[in-house]
Design a protein around this nucleic acid. Structure first.
Lengths: 229, 229
DNA sequence: ACAGTGTGTGAAAACACTGTCGCAAAGGCC
DNA sequence: GGCCTTTGCGACAGTGTTTTCACACACTGT
C-alpha cells in the first residue's frame, strides 16, 4: 500500500533528488514544476501528501496551499512546505494556511522522509493523542492500557511495549534482532530466543479474545503483526 | 461556556496566529509575552488552560510551569508546552514538572486544537461547581467531601488531594514523580516511595466500598485511576 | 503537657516479570 | 519417509518492583 507524494518544486534537480529518495523509501511520486501543473496532477489523481516549495514561478507555494485548502478534493491532503533558510519567518502564514509541517532547505532526505512519515501517520487516525487502533485492538498510550473489543487487557510491561511497537508498525515482518532493537532498546544484550518467549506471552494475553493470530510467525524471517489472518 | 486559554509565547507572530486559531475554534484567549506578564494575567483571571512556550526571555517556560504548580491558584490549571524540534529531549523533564501535554513546533493549528480539547476533556468531569463524579465515587470540592454510593467517606487531607487529582485526571498513568508534583506541589521534597504509602492508604479508605481497584498499579510506570477494572 | 491524628521513612515480605533451558512439535528439503 | 532447522511450550530461578508494616516525628486542639 504505497503512499503517493506530489512534489511541487520548480528546480528540476531538487525535484529529481527528492523523487529518487522517496521512491527508495517505498513511496510513489508525482511531480509538478508550477502551481498549474500541480493542480492538474491533483485533479487527475489525489495524492496522499503534497510537498510544496515556498517559492514558485507564478502562484507562490503559499497561495497554492491556501487554494488547495479551499478545494473539496484537496482539503484533507496534508501539505509539507519546503522553505529556504531566511524564509522561516513566514512559517506563521504557512501554519495559518493549514500547512502541516515545513522543512528548511537544505534538508537531508532522511529528515524529509521522517517528516513525511510523521505527517502521514498523523493524518491516519493517529491524531497525536497516543491512541492507536487496529482491528479489534486499541492501545491507549497515556493510560498505558490495551483494550480488546472495549475490554481492558491485562498485560505486562514488555508485552505492552512489544504490542505497542507492533500496533504502530503492522503488516510488516521484523526479525528477532530488529524487535530486540526496537522493543528492548539497542543497548541491552539478550538471547534472540527471548523474543520467542515474549511473542508467546503476548499471544497468551490475547488468547481470551481470540486475537492471538494477529501475531504471526514468518518462518526463517521473524514475526509480523497483522489484522488479517 | 467558552474556555479561556492563556498563551505564553514571546514571538508575537506565533502568539497572534495561535490566538486567531483558538478564537475561531470558540475559545477565549489571553496573551502574555513573558513569565511576569503571564503571572499577572493569571492573578487577574485564572484561565482554563495555559499554552506555554518552552523558550521564554527571562524565566524559562519550564521554570514557570514549576512555579505555577506550586501556587495554590494555578496548581489545577492544565499546561501544554510548546517546544521547538530538537528540544524534544527535554520532554521527560517537562512531563515531570507536571506538564499535561506538549506539542512540537511547527504544529498545525488543527493538531494544537485537538490536543487542547483532549486535555480539557481529561481534566473535566468538573463542571465548574467543583463536583466531580466518576463511577460510584463523587467528590465535592467546595465541601471537601467524598461520597461513595452516596455514603460519606472518611478521608485524610493527603488522600483527599490525591483522590481529587485522580478523579480529575482519570484513565492516565502518572509516575510517582508526577504525582508528587501535582499532589504535593513541586516545592516539597519527599521520597518517591512515600507515594506508594499514600496509594495504599487511599486504597484502604476505599476498601469498605470495594472501590480499591480503581487505583491501579502500572508496573514500571506509576499509577492510574480508572473506572474500569 | 498530652492525647489524637496525620505524615514520611526504612526494612522486610510478597509479588510480578524476565531471561534462559531443555525438550517437543512443526516445517522444509532431499 | 528421514534428517535438519526453526519455532512453540512449560518450568524455573534470579531480579527488580511494589506492598505492607511498624515506628518516629510533627502538628492540633484541649
Amino acid at each position: 500500500m504505497h503512499k503517493r507524494i506530489l512534489i511541487v518544486e520548480d528546480e528540476a534537480s531538487i525535484r529529481d533528488m527528492v523523487a529518487f529518495a522517496l521512491r527508495k523509501a517505498g513511496m510513489d511520486t508525482a511531480q509538478a514544476a508550477d502551481a498549474r501543473t500541480a493542480q492538474m496532477s491533483i485533479a487527475e489523481q489525489v495524492p496522499d501528501l503534497i510537498l510544496l516549495d515556498w517559492m514558485l514561478p507564478g502562484t507562490s507555494g503559499l497561495d497554492l496551499a491556501r487554494r488547495l485548502r479551499k478545494e473539496e478534493l484537496s482539503r484533507e491532503v496534508p501539505i509539507i512546505m519546503l522553505t529556504a533558510r531566511g524564509e522561516e519567518m513566514d512559517r506563521v502564514n504557512g501554519l495559518e494556511a493549514g500547512v502541516d509541517d515545513y522543512v528548511v532547505k537544505p534538508f537531508s532526505t532522511r529528515e524529509l522522509i521522517a517528516r513525511i512519515k510523521a505527517v502521514l501517520r498523523r493524518s491516519q487516525g493517529d491524531d497525536g493523542s497516543g491512541m492507536v487502533e487496529l482491528g479489534r485492538l486499541r492501545i491507549d498510550g497515556p493510560a498505558h492500557r490495551v483494550f480488546a473489543v472495549d475490554e481492558p487487557v491485562p498485560i505486562g510491561p514488555t508485552e505492552y511495549r512489544l504490542l505497542y511497537f507492533f500496533m504502530t508498525h503492522p503488516e510488516r515482518v521484523y526479525s528477532r534482532a530488529q524487535l530486540l532493537d526496537h522493543v528492548w532498546g539497542g543497548s541491552v544484550y539478550v538471547e534472540e530466543r527471548t523474543v520467542d518467549v515474549h511473542i508467546r506471552r503476548l499471544r497468551k494475553t490475547l488468547e481470551p479474545w481470540k486475537l492471538e493470530d494477529m501475531v504471526q510467525t514468518v518462518r526463517g524471517a521473524g514475526y509480523r503483526f497483522s489484522a488479517s489472518p
